[in-house]
Nucleic acid binder design. Structure first.
Lengths: 343, 343
DNA sequence: CTGTTAGCGCATTCAC
DNA sequence: GTGAATGCGCTAACAG
């Protein structure tokens, strides 16, 4: 079913049909009536590719995100974005990255300002710092530049889409895995990694909530305890942790709520502790290595590639057709459990 | 980079460039040299959509598969095929299904013959019966009709692609889950569902192998035992099974190697047995219900939708461009672990 | 307000 | 052997 066919069926010109479809210009009531009558039963669907071909618009997409490190989370997201660019190669897209140090607010501000100076048609935001990100969004709103969120979301923004896993569910699933790994009388510990800045706070918070809720509804099991570990500066904090583990052999199972599971795994290994289970997040190269080695038992993964792909896909649809904002969840991307056996 | 640009850069006409790109006609050495020089550094990639637009070919795809039941495995595959058809809606595709009863060789033969009578451009094969499928493939080979396999594969065929999870790995993963669910002193039982016909034998065989290999390398754990359960005819076989379970309370964990986990779960429930764990395959509606109810602990899932999507995508690429056969694995689709908490 | 036309990238046909 | 012309579905600009 093409525009031409519609026009023939309704006795008007293709131009008019196009005008009605994209409610571009003023159209007479009669013409509209005739065309819509045909449209009602014809299930016409616009061919996005020929449409783009004709529009021959070119879009520049900006991506702001934490520094992309090979084999890391945002590296996979970029892979997904690349794939989408490939898939829609008939649409002229240029993608520019603005990376920032996720532990440095100033670097983030700088990246955001650069982005605002560059003229871009749409933005993919991988935000870390709430205040700065919200401010960025309101600037974009003013310029009516559409944007989507990946991984995080903040309230009070008008994003066109939002791509992330359901972190609360992730936490629940993690709870179940921990529950399985630890025998009834053993203890579970959630390791909170101290970090400069408020990074990932929303996601890890949701995960913790899910985890706790799992254990609340779980009779006959001690509630997991928490340990705050500082991997960066104070050496003695690490040693304290190791000592604590040595002194509490019944702590059999450790949860790491962000992608740094490998750091904990390596720390244990370098101290000759090999009788604890670790469950972590994200299939980064380092974490995969630990899964291989057996120092991590389970990894919970989002689908970063899919997130990247769908983000760009969403923006393209929006740029071409202003298709409805769908600002809520865009079909929340799922969680995946990864084990050594799957590698 | 367009054909026109290439032609300008190399000082020939677009027609000639096209001839060279698709090595269609005889082209003079000089022209070829000039164009290939430009091509070498220009990384031209044909725009599949405009290409299809111009070719305005229409393809008819045939799908042969076991009867599609709503909420079942092949239903999801069809969803993926539909999605691909949507995504490539600029290419005129008609998809026709030939379903057969997977427990009835004759019905399968009938479907295969119908398929061969219908003239189609390519085939997606969800085979069950080896002999019949191999024969179908050789008929298709003779007509040089390309085909891909979903879910199963048989040797001696010349498929253009093959979309399935790695069943051996699935088995290993299942082993790990069973190992986790059952306490050290408890026993694990693999339930083999007796079925008419040789259905799914390859897949379940691979799964069993993986499962066994997991436990071989797993010290201090009894090897899982097997029970062959006949759900269809003999009532006493079921009762025997229930009695056996009642008499062996240390059998805490049951594995079902195909998608019928829900049948076992329901059987236990209707007999008031609720202290056993079940691990099964495939996220069918029935299995999902059991996961919800808590009667199934884990489901291992392939990505049937993705398999369907990629199958059609692969065929399109092949039909349009005879792109290299890639008859091996086409990036084996992964396995996924599903739990109640993810729902 | 509406029909006509040209052109996007590509493949084919038809003159040369 | 090769270039020019045409049309696929769609949009935009222009002329009525």
């Amino acid at each position: 079913m093409t525009i031409k066919q519609i026009s023939e069926l309704s006795g008007v010109s293709p131009g008019t049909v196009d005008r009605i479809l994209h409610n571009r210009d003023k159209v007479s009531k009669e013409a509209r009536a005739k065309v819509e009558a045909v449209l009602a039963k014809a299930d016409y669907r616009c061919n996005i590719h020929t449409s783009a071909l004709s529009l021959r618009k070119s879009f520049s997409i900006a991506v702001v995100c934490p520094t992309i490190i090979k084999g890391d989370y945002w590296h996979s997201i970029r892979a997904g974005i690349d794939k989408a660019q490939e898939e829609y190669s008939d649409i002229e897209l240029s993608v520019q990255y603005f990376e920032y140090d996720q532990y440095d607010t100033e670097s983030c501000k700088r990246a955001f300002n650069q982005l605002l100076d560059s003229s871009c048609s749409a933005v993919i935001i991988g935000g870390t710092f709430e205040e700065e990100t919200v401010s960025l969004c309101s600037s974009l709103d003013k310029k009516s530049t559409p944007y989507v969120f990946i991984d995080t979301r903040f309230d009070g923004c008008h994003q066109v889409g939002h791509f992330t896993a359901d972190q609360y569910k992730c936490g629940k699933v993690m709870g179940k895995l921990l529950d399985l790994l630890a025998l009834a009388e053993e203890r579970i510990c959630v390791i909170r990694l101290a970090r400069t800045g408020s990074s990932h706070s929303f996601n890890t918070g949701e995960r913790l909530k899910g985890l706790q809720d799992y254990f609340s509804s779980c009779a006959g099991r001690k509630f997991p305890e928490e340990f705050t570990l500082n991997l960066s500066s104070q050496e003695n904090n690490k040693e304290q942790f190791i000592e604590w583990l040595r002194g509490n052999r019944d702590i059999s199972t450790l949860a790491v709520l962000n992608s740094k599971g490998h750091s904990v795994a390596d720390l244990l290994r370098s101290n000759g502790i090999s009788d604890r289970h670790i469950v972590g997040f994200d299939a980064t190269d380092e974490n995969i290595r630990c899964l291989h080695e057996g120092t991590i038992s389970f990894l919970l993964c989002q689908h970063p590639e899919q997130q990247g792909f769908e983000s760009l896909q969403r923006l393209i649809a929006y740029l071409l057709y202003r298709s409805p904002a769908n600002s809520g969840d865009t079909g929340p991307v799922g969680v995946e459990i990864l084990t050594k056996e799957m590698l």
